[in-house]
Structure formats: structure tokens, C-alpha cells
Design a binder for these strands. Sequence first.
DNA 1: GCAATTCCTACTAAATTAGTATATAATACT
DNA 2: AGTATTATATACTAATTTAGTAGGAATTGC
Lengths: 138, 138
Amino acid sequence: MQLTTKTEYSVRALVTLSESVDSLKSINEICTKQNLPKKYVEQLFRKLKKQSVIASVSGSKGGYYLKTPAKEITLGTIMEIVENHPYEVSCERNSVELEYCQVENCQYRHLWHEIYGNIKDYLNTISLENIKERIDKE
Amino acid sequence: MQLTTKTEYSVRALVTLSESVDSLKSINEICTKQNLPKKYVEQLFRKLKKQSVIASVSGSKGGYYLKTPAKEITLGTIMEIVENHPYEVSCERNSVELEYCQVENCQYRHLWHEIYGNIKDYLNTISLENIKERIDKE
DNA sequence: GCAATTCCTACTAAATTAGTATATAATACT
DNA sequence: AGTATTATATACTAATTTAGTAGGAATTGC
């Protein structure tokens, strides 16, 4: 499990995007405002678009907009989209680490998944709208 | 935030260690039983010892034992000891990423810390004893 | 003294992170 | 029609971190 700049920057960018409800915002606009690396955010936005969190209009005067309402986009969702394999247990990474797994009856794997499930549930209670309100208040 | 083999292996090793209440268990014994890399677990155990989770006796017939009762050792504690900087926000890593931080009023940082705090609280509700009971049941 | 153990530091290959670079495609405006 | 502005796409890279390994020193039981 990890939570990196991918999630951090995505959230900041999406909050900024959510500020304009009916209009488009370009990567350039968002990243200038939030002081974020454009090309990096571009990549994150492509992933978020693929999962219909946002949508876009190409060309001049183009940009992005929220496709899903800010209430329905959660931190958990964002994290799962932009991070690598956030809830993966080591023995599922299928590499060398499999050597150190209890192959026959991996009770621990169930434990980790239960824990991840609870964290996931928690992260899904935090919507983009919640975050926006919180940020605005200060 | 990350949760890696360091935490995974530590938990498996500590659960095994907690099975023998009054006697010592060596790294060798634990790692053979749990199929874990000895030298790696050794490193983890040294960190756990430094924080008084476990204690040790050197020399032949030596080994480790739980210094803190299994009830009081939590997953959160273990994670904080063995992982690198589990709850660090990108702008605190003090490297290049600082460039992309909202220096003046980093409202987001507070948000991340609040979220981490809640995850931490949750992880601290899971004790080694809980885990042991759970693993034994199956 | 020898074997088994913990203690300690340093090293390393592979993977991942945190980006950058470069080019193509679409669209608005003139 | 041409240009500027935007998204789309793929590939590349330096730095860091993970997931260990290696080799030895110090300690203790027998």
C-alpha cells in the first residue's frame, strides 16, 4: 500500500478543477495555480479520464472538467486510479517475494486484505467535495 | 505512506515469537517456521528491539522474546518502527518535491496528516494478540 | 575452545517514483 | 489557410527505495 505524490497532486489538481463548475480548465491553468509539474499531472489526468472521473475537450480553448460530481469522487477512488497497485500484498506481486509466502494456507493474506478493505472504506468516505469545503474554509 | 514486506514479515515473525511465552526463540527458528529471509528479519528485529517491542539474549541458546505484552503491541506501532517514514507528506520529504508544495499556506498538509492520523488510530486497534487469535482460528 | 546466537555495517540488484522529452492530433481564432 | 493552444501518447531518465545479501565482530552455553 502506498500514497504518493500521484494521489497528492491529483487531489490538488482535481480540487482546483472542481472550482469551475461549468467551464473548462486546462492543465496549464491548474498547474500554474497549484504550482504542479504539468507533464506529470497530464499523465495523472489521462488515467482519471480513462476511469471517467474527468472528461476533456481537445484543441485551443480546450481543457478538462469533472465528469463525475465532486460528491461522488472519493479519495479512495482517486488513489486506486493513480497509484500503482495500492492494495497489493507482497505475495501477490508475483515476483521473488513469492518465495517468502506461506503458500499452502496464507492466512495473513486475508488479514491484509481485510485491513486494506477497512482503509479503503475510510478513504471512500472522503469526497472531493469534503476536501474542497475543508480547503476553502481556511 | 507505505506498507511493505517490512511490516508484513515483522508481523509474521512477531506472531511466531509470541507463541512461546516464557522461552526464547531464535531468528533461525522463527524464519524457518515462517519461511522468511533470516538476515532481513534480523534487521527488522533490531529496530523492534530498539523500541522495546522485543528483547534479546545473546550467545548460544540465546534468542528473542516479547518485551511488551502482545495485547499492547499494535500493527500501527510495528509499522511505524519498521517502515521508512510511513506518514510523511511529500512536501516534508525535503527534497526536490518541495518545489511543488504550496509553501505559504499548505492546507493540504493538514488534511493528509488528519487522514494519516485516522489510519494510524485504526491500525492501533489491531493488536498482535488480535492477529494471533485470528491466525490460530483457521 | 567451539558452536550457536545476537549485533552491526556495508553492499547490491531490481523496482518504483517523480518526473522530463518529444512528437502527434484536435480545435479555436485570425 | 495558418498559427497558437490545447489534449493525447509513448518513451526516457535520475534519484530513491525496496528487498534483500555478505561478512564479520561480540556474546554466551556447553
